[in-house]
Simulated scan of single mutants.
Amino acid sequence: MVRIVKLTIDPGKAAAFERIFSEKMLLIRNFPGCRHLALWKSHLPAGVFMTYSLWDGQDALDAYRHSAMFADIWTAIKPWFTAKPEAWSLDDITPTR
Protein backbone atom coordinates (compact mmCIF):
# COMPACT_ATOMS: atom_id res chain seq x y z
CA MET A 1 0.00 0.00 0.00
CA VAL A 2 1.24 3.47 -0.88
CA ARG A 3 0.73 6.30 1.60
CA ILE A 4 1.19 9.91 0.55
CA VAL A 5 0.84 12.67 3.12
CA LYS A 6 0.94 16.38 2.31
CA LEU A 7 2.32 18.54 5.12
CA THR A 8 2.26 22.32 4.85
CA ILE A 9 4.86 23.68 7.25
CA ASP A 10 5.64 27.26 8.25
CA PRO A 11 8.56 28.09 5.90
CA GLY A 12 10.47 29.44 8.89
CA LYS A 13 10.30 25.96 10.47
CA ALA A 14 11.09 24.00 7.29
CA ALA A 15 14.76 23.43 8.17
CA ALA A 16 13.82 22.16 11.64
CA PHE A 17 11.20 19.86 10.08
CA GLU A 18 13.76 18.47 7.64
CA ARG A 19 16.18 17.89 10.53
CA ILE A 20 13.59 15.98 12.58
CA PHE A 21 12.61 13.91 9.56
CA SER A 22 16.25 13.08 8.88
CA GLU A 23 16.77 12.04 12.51
CA LYS A 24 13.66 9.80 12.60
CA MET A 25 13.66 8.43 9.05
CA LEU A 26 15.54 5.20 9.77
CA LEU A 27 13.37 4.46 12.80
CA ILE A 28 10.24 4.83 10.68
CA ARG A 29 11.73 2.81 7.82
CA ASN A 30 12.53 0.01 10.28
CA PHE A 31 9.04 0.01 11.80
CA PRO A 32 7.41 -3.39 11.17
CA GLY A 33 5.50 -3.30 7.89
CA CYS A 34 7.21 -0.21 6.43
CA ARG A 35 9.00 -1.05 3.20
CA HIS A 36 10.06 2.43 2.07
CA LEU A 37 9.92 6.06 3.18
CA ALA A 38 10.87 9.23 1.32
CA LEU A 39 10.36 12.95 1.85
CA TRP A 40 9.62 15.22 -1.08
CA LYS A 41 9.83 19.02 -1.00
CA SER A 42 7.87 21.35 -3.24
CA HIS A 43 9.72 23.97 -5.29
CA LEU A 44 6.81 26.36 -4.79
CA PRO A 45 5.09 27.13 -2.58
CA ALA A 46 7.70 27.03 0.17
CA GLY A 47 6.98 24.81 3.13
CA VAL A 48 5.02 22.11 1.31
CA PHE A 49 6.32 18.57 1.87
CA MET A 50 5.04 15.15 0.89
CA THR A 51 5.92 11.90 2.56
CA TYR A 52 5.82 8.84 0.35
CA SER A 53 5.82 5.49 2.09
CA LEU A 54 5.13 1.88 1.22
CA TRP A 55 3.42 -0.36 3.77
CA ASP A 56 2.56 -4.04 3.92
CA GLY A 57 -1.07 -3.00 4.40
CA GLN A 58 -3.52 -0.93 6.41
CA ASP A 59 -2.84 -2.90 9.61
CA ALA A 60 0.89 -2.07 9.45
CA LEU A 61 0.17 1.60 8.80
CA ASP A 62 -2.37 1.70 11.63
CA ALA A 63 0.13 0.11 14.03
CA TYR A 64 2.63 2.86 13.18
CA ARG A 65 0.02 5.64 13.45
CA HIS A 66 -0.93 4.39 16.94
CA SER A 67 2.67 3.99 18.13
CA ALA A 68 4.52 6.10 20.68
CA MET A 69 7.07 6.94 17.96
CA PHE A 70 4.39 8.50 15.74
CA ALA A 71 2.93 10.41 18.70
CA ASP A 72 6.36 11.86 19.58
CA ILE A 73 7.08 12.96 16.00
CA TRP A 74 3.58 14.38 15.46
CA THR A 75 3.72 16.32 18.75
CA ALA A 76 7.00 17.92 17.69
CA ILE A 77 5.89 19.01 14.21
CA LYS A 78 2.17 19.72 14.64
CA PRO A 79 2.65 23.34 15.87
CA TRP A 80 4.45 24.13 12.60
CA PHE A 81 1.51 23.24 10.31
CA THR A 82 -0.03 26.15 8.42
CA ALA A 83 -2.72 23.95 6.85
CA LYS A 84 -4.44 20.71 7.76
CA PRO A 85 -2.40 17.67 6.65
CA GLU A 86 -3.87 15.69 3.76
CA ALA A 87 -3.33 11.96 3.34
CA TRP A 88 -4.03 9.33 0.71
CA SER A 89 -3.73 5.55 0.97
CA LEU A 90 -3.45 3.97 -2.46
CA ASP A 91 -3.12 0.55 -4.04
CA ASP A 92 -1.11 0.09 -7.21
CA ILE A 93 -3.48 -1.34 -9.81
CA THR A 94 -1.16 -0.98 -12.78
CA PRO A 95 -1.66 -4.02 -15.04
CA THR A 96 1.41 -6.24 -15.34
CA ARG A 97 2.49 -7.88 -18.55
Rank of each mutant, 00 (worst) to 15 (best):
A15H: 11
A15L: 10
A16P: 04
A16I: 01
R19G: 01
R19P: 00
R19S: 11
I20Y: 11
I20N: 05
E23N: 09
K24V: 11
K24M: 12
M25A: 13
L27D: 15
N30L: 04
N30P: 00
F31D: 04
P32Q: 05
G33C: 07
G33Q: 02
G33Y: 02
C34E: 10
R35S: 11
R35N: 14
H36L: 09
L39G: 01
K41C: 08
S42K: 12
S42G: 13
H43E: 13
L44W: 04
V48E: 15
F49I: 13
M50Q: 10
T51P: 03
Y52I: 09
D56K: 05
Q58H: 08
D59C: 01
A60Y: 01
A60R: 10
A60E: 02
A63P: 09
Y64R: 04
Y64S: 02
Y64P: 00
R65S: 07
R65M: 14
S67K: 08
S67P: 07
A68I: 07
D72H: 07
I73E: 03
I73Y: 08
I73C: 05
W74I: 02
T75C: 03
I77Y: 02
K78T: 14
P79R: 07
W80E: 08
W80N: 07
F81E: 04
T82L: 11
A83D: 07
A83P: 00
P85A: 06
S89K: 01
S89M: 07
D91E: 14
D92I: 06
P95F: 06
T96N: 05
